[in-house]
Design a binder for these strands. Structure first.
Lengths: 223, 223
DNA sequence: CTCGTTCCAAAACAAACGTTAGATAGAGTA
DNA sequence: TACTCTATCTAACGTTTGTTTTGGAACGAG
């Protein structure tokens, strides 16, 4: 609202860290982000207080403003980092496939990458998924490009697989992507690491995504 | 916190409505609930203000307390009504099936009932699903019984179908239920009624749930 | 008309929120 | 030693939150 210019601002770009990359304060910044991600994931954005984040990070509430301009700015960074995390996990797994891999194998690798990235290194990506639905349109706008990038990655994989006849083509690719990512994303709502491993669960869900709940080779299958 | 006893409380149970079922104030009560459900669905619980609810309902913020004891109490009623709504929709559709219906047909009816109940008469059920993840454990505890009832309905259907060999049995029923309901629930995050009908989408998703993204009659698997 | 009940508006309440301002301790530099 | 910059604390600001209090229309019963 107000024009908040510093009284004496000679340097136009103060730059985040004073010296080098691993600046002394960079650790604090990272700590704040990690604490925020954890709390956002558990309680959502609005329910999480700057004082909670500060306590979790071992500092005082006001000190946060040395590193971030606002609570919204913290959210944006957590959101972006979360999507980037799973996006990188997926791209890495797909890129590691041999060139002879089928489209189905690429999708399978992507599903596993998405799930593992979500359930393992969880706070940022889980926070990203769980809070996205409850933020203002202004915040969504700032975050949208990264999300659309990731969506495009899936759309291309699905469309290519459809054209190659490796997955069904009677359902729009976009519907398929929304359904597919939704199935994966919802796991963060109920997954409990103490109850069964991530790997086993991920493969179960992968099977369900590909073949549904129908029996593999039904003895009395209708034709 | 404080002991808030009315100064002169002769009647132990004032009862909600003074006269009959359709009391004069029952309409206001319902209006408050409807407004709250709509806002909870759109913004989440914490982000929704009592003053917003009041404005939406056409009354004053303080007046809400004539009908409800607290904001939490409103949430609980919205949550319960939401689950009850889809639960009834599902039970009705399943009950309307002929006695000769297979387990697969029962599950298909349930899936459609869940989706249609969710996407059509949406505010209460959508609010219930979207806010459940962000409320305190105390609130969850009050709401849990109704939710578990509904979960049990699905578990029984799935287990019966597994025993009959009509759906795959190589994946735990509980995992299957969580995956299945998750896929359906996530639709409220992206469904847009202006872009395609509810019925068509529901059947697409139903197909995906049953047969996955694999082609219907694949090159490998012919009937 | 009078009384009691029902329903709600108006205004205020304390607590908590995001945010800002000023002071301060410590490290580096000259 | 004196000065500067960095990173933080302390304390407060104004606003908004859920909630409470008070008072008074509206209305039916006697």
């Amino acid at each position: 609202m107000e024009c908040t210019e510093k009284t004496a601002s000679e340097k136009a770009e103060p730059l985040v860290s004073s010296r080098g990359e691993g600046g002394r304060s960079a650790a604090s910044r990272a700590q704040i982000l990690a604490s925020a991600a954890k709390l956002f994931r558990e309680q959502g954005y609005v329910a999480t207080t700057l004082r909670q984040i500060a306590t979790e990070a071992g500092i005082q509430a006001g000190s946060i403003y040395y590193h971030f301009a606002s609570k919204d700015d913290i959210l944006i960074e957590v959101l972006d980092a979360g999507i980037a995390s799973v996006s990188n996990a997926v791209r890495a797994r797909v890129a590691n496939l041999p060139p002879t891999a089928t489209h189905r194998e690429r999708i399978r690798a992507a599903v596993l990458g998405h799930l593992l990235g979500l359930l393992r290194h969880g706070d940022f990506s889980s926070a990203s998924i769980r809070t996205y639905g409850q933020i203002s349109v202004a915040l969504k706008k700032r975050h949208r490009p990264i999300r659309e990038d990731y969506a495009r990655l899936w759309d291309e994989m699905i469309e290519n697989a459809q054209k190659a006849g490796e997955i069904r083509a009677d359902i729009p690719a976009k519907t398929m992507r929304l359904y597919l990512l939704g199935s994966l994303n919802w796991t963060v709502e109920w997954f409990n690491p103490r109850r069964g491993g991530v790997q086993a669960l991920s493969e179960n869900i992968c099977d369900l995504v590909f073949d549904g709940i129908s029996p593999e080779a039904g003895p009395l299958m209708k034709c």
